[in-house]
Simulated scan of single mutants.
Amino acid sequence: MTRHGPVPPVWLCATCSAPWPCATGRDELLQEFAASPVALALYMNAYYVAASQDISWAPAGTLHRRFLGWLP
């Protein structure tokens, strides 16, 4: 499991305080889910839905790119 996990409801990285998922968190998640990219997409989608509720003021496209746009 990644050390660079989210801190809801602000959705910053618990380790580096960057917007989550941070670059290191993304790398760790890609390694952790290397054998199952579909599972990673579903996992990140659940976080996207939760963050959309917590950060309701953010444009949907911005959150979509942040949580899902980096997936392979």
Rank of each mutant, 00 (worst) to 15 (best):
M1D: 15
T2I: 05
T2L: 02
R3S: 15
R3M: 15
R3I: 15
R3V: 12
H4M: 06
H4V: 07
G5Q: 14
G5E: 14
G5V: 15
G5A: 14
P6D: 13
P6I: 10
V7I: 13
V7R: 15
V7M: 12
V7A: 01
V7T: 11
V7P: 06
P8Y: 08
P8N: 03
P8L: 01
P9W: 08
V10P: 04
W11F: 00
C13Y: 02
C13R: 05
C13T: 07
A14W: 01
T15I: 05
T15D: 11
T15S: 07
C16K: 14
C16T: 12
S17H: 04
S17K: 03
S17C: 00
S17V: 01
S17I: 00
S17Q: 05
S17M: 01
S17G: 02
A18N: 10
A18Q: 11
P19Y: 00
P19V: 04
P19Q: 01
P19E: 06
P19S: 03
W20P: 11
W20A: 12
W20T: 12
P21I: 13
P21Q: 09
P21C: 08
C22N: 03
C22T: 08
C22E: 04
A23L: 12
T24Q: 14
G25C: 00
G25L: 13
R26C: 09
R26N: 02
D27E: 02
D27L: 03
E28I: 01
L29I: 09
L29Y: 12
L29K: 10
L30H: 14
L30T: 05
Q31E: 08
F33L: 04
F33M: 11
A34R: 04
A35N: 05
A35L: 13
A35S: 13
A35Y: 09
S36M: 13
S36V: 14
S36P: 10
P37A: 11
P37D: 10
P37R: 14
L40F: 14
L42I: 10
L42P: 08
Y43C: 10
M44S: 09
M44G: 07
M44L: 00
M44D: 08
N45D: 00
N45W: 02
Y47A: 03
Y47G: 00
Y47H: 12
Y47K: 04
Y48C: 08
V49R: 14
A50T: 13
A50C: 05
A50D: 09
A51E: 03
A51L: 10
A51V: 05
A51S: 13
A51K: 04
S52H: 04
S52W: 03
S52D: 04
Q53I: 02
Q53T: 06
Q53L: 08
Q53M: 04
Q53K: 02
I55E: 00
S56D: 15
S56R: 14
S56E: 15
W57A: 06
W57C: 02
A58N: 00
A58V: 12
A58I: 06
A58T: 10
P59L: 01
P59W: 04
P59F: 03
A60V: 11
A60W: 04
A60S: 07
G61R: 06
G61W: 01
G61H: 08
G61L: 08
T62S: 10
T62F: 05
L63H: 02
L63Y: 03
H64G: 05
R65V: 09
R65G: 08
R65Q: 14
R66C: 08
L68K: 14
L68E: 07
L68Q: 14
G69T: 01
G69D: 11
L71V: 00
L71Y: 09
P72E: 00
P72L: 00
